[in-house]
Design a protein around this nucleic acid. Structure first.
Lengths: 69, 69
DNA sequence: CTTGAATAGGGTAATTAGGGGA
DNA sequence: CCTGTCCTAATTACCCTATTCA
């Protein structure tokens, strides 16, 4: 099994998420600010997004908003 | 470098689709509403269209219509 | 440590959504 | 039935500079 995986969730950069939705990276930032998209922050303040959540949103699956910026 | 590219479908904005068909963007919206054209929504509610589907329609290839939205 | 690309901010134009009517 | 236009509100895109990432 995958008992040796230390919670390695695939993360996407703002540019990658923006490319998937065909929007500006700034728009992705606004979604994170509005709590429409969960965001993980680097220690420097940059945002990273969960690939699984982004794909789910692209597929039109409504998600719960647990995170707000 | 290919590990950094999540399969991204080329998407078109309403204005781009409208320009290709030589119609008003509002007309493209009606097509999406009528289910004649599948649409992907941004988190803000704006529509994005699949380039492959648009090109197929431009080429005169009949598409399936799933009545939606 | 140095470099080049990407991101965070903020502020201002341009698109889009939606309804309604021609 | 299908399309183009007018309206308001909301969303998104592009401008800049400083900071962070790889």
């Amino acid at each position: 099994m995958t008992t040796r995986s230390p919670d390695a969730e695939p993360l996407l950069t703002p540019a990658e998420v923006a490319a998937l939705f065909r929007v500006d990276p700034k728009t992705v930032t606004r979604w994170a600010k509005a709590g429409k998209l969960s965001s993980i922050r680097t220690l420097g303040g940059h945002r990273r997004y969960r690939e699984s959540e982004v794909r789910a949103l692209l597929a039109g699956i409504p998600q719960q908003r647990l995170d707000e910026d």
